[in-house]
Design a binder for these strands. Structure first.
Length: 125
RNA sequence: CGAGAGGACCGGACGGUCGCUCCGCGGGCUUAGCCCACGGGGAGGAAAGUCCGGGCUCCACGGGUCGAGGUGGUUGCUAACGGCAACCGGCCGCGAGGCUAGGGAAAGUGCCACAGAAAACAAACCGCCGCGGGCGGCCUCCGGGCCGGGCGCGGUAAGGGUGAAAAGGUGCGGUAAGAGCGCACCGCGGUCCUGGUGACAGGGCCGGCAGGGCAAACCCCACCUGGAGAAAGACCAAAUAGGGAAGGCCGACGGUUGAUGACCCGCAUCCAGGACCUUCCGGGUAGGUCGUUCGAGGCCGGGCGCGAGUCCGGUCCCAGAGAAAUGACCGUCACCCCUCCUCGGAGGGGGACAGGAUCCGGCUUACAGGUCCUCUCGCGCC
RNA sequence: GGGCGACUAACUCAAUUGGCAGAGUGCCAUGUUCACAGCGUGGAGGUUACUGGUUCAAGUCCAGUGUCGCCCA
């Protein structure tokens, strides 16, 4: 199984993010807030939103982004296909580790995806 | 050895596994593209702050003056600069060196609180000194003499006091007391000479002294500046709506009896018109491509220059992302700290400031640890 | 990426041309009341965001740094 992360695995337009925030279901943990929404594609896509309030310095902010992306890359096949996943840091001044982020990512996406099914029973079929 | 001054530089190294991106070459497929394999490139000295200057792009543009903003020793360097170099002056340091917005206050305006007599036209509070008349006290050889405080007129700027600042400083002479009043040295102003491209420096002569500070207050002088900024700008260009042109179709109702077929009705053709169809054209949104990395470029050698730099030759291609890559997890070895001890090992911990977004030249700010060179002062030894 | 602004007592704001940093609310003490509120009296509280410079003197002028906020799209 290839653990690739290609450009088409990334949410690229403001419309994608707006749809996720408007229609998606959310879940929150110690490290992550996640938003999930179906995207009508066969694969799962990732969106990152790491703002300036998390860390003032770009190096620290990039560290958070890169760890989130790495966790998504490694766990992509454990997630439901055909959804958009937006990851947002849960706290300011976050210093995540890869192991914790991977565990929390899988758990929270599953939780949010179940919530989406309860909210939209028709689409689930 | 200790204490310091200046400058240059580094910013862990190597390897493994899984990934990202660009370029080259080859291959495959369902061929605007996607995928695979191989080789190569992939953050910084500040990439940062955005404080200056330029390249580049678009807009505006006849010239001059005024205004506004900026800069401010001189000479150079540079594409340019508020940068840099060398030099000059001032201040600080025993010194190596450091700091320096450092033009003009005899163009004008303004400000100088409090204190103080007085804060800029100069003047005189306490003083000091002289003269005048009067008062009191003491002495007396009865002529007067001495002392005291007060008043009036005048001299003075030494002393006191205030202040950040009060009409050069020190010394000697001089005087009723004083004062550049006179003299010497220092300072200052003018003028001439010499040296220097120059800022300035040195010297001669003359003048007894002109005159406060603030221009990062207004201002004057000299010089500089058109505006916007890559989200600049150029090109390609869906879907939908709308605009224009041509053709088709309709022209049944409706068209001052629309025109023609002499006239009327019908009919035909044509015209106007049309909410329909096709094709084309231009504008233009989403989206895409370019701008976009070969450049005031790096390295090496040589020439010129004290230097900043510059010229010549050789050589190299050295990040180009785009919801935005340069990452994640390990191992080994160096470096630093702590603990243990069989003094050489074992165990544990640590490594700063910080991430390109159009590109350069500077400035400023942040920074663990470390390397090298030159110089100064002190102590000791030879 | 580019262009601007603000920062003064615990809070909200003043401070002329540079000349002793103030006001209201709040806080503390005290009086009044059986008690509380209110009112009266007195008082404390400041590195003027920070670091330098100009000046005799800086909250004010100049430069740099930090934090917060706004605008362009």
């Amino acid at each position: 199984m290839k653990l690739r992360f290609r450009p088409h695995h990334r949410m690229k337009s403001a419309r994608d993010f707006a749809r996720a925030y408007r229609q998606g279901s959310r879940a929150r943990g110690a490290l992550l807030r996640v938003v999930v929404v179906p995207n009508g594609l066969e694969h799962t896509r990732l969106g990152l939103s790491v703002g300036r309030s998390v860390w003032r310095h770009a190096v620290r902010r990039n560290r958070v982004r890169r760890l989130f992306r790495e966790a998504f890359r490694l766990e992509r096949h454990a997630l439901p296909p055909g959804i958009d996943v937006v990851l947002i840091p849960a706290e300011k001044a976050l210093e995540p580790t890869l192991e914790r982020t991977r565990r929390e990512l899988v758990g929270l996406v599953g939780k949010a995806w179940r919530r989406y099914g309860e909210k939209n029973p028709a689409e689930r079929a």
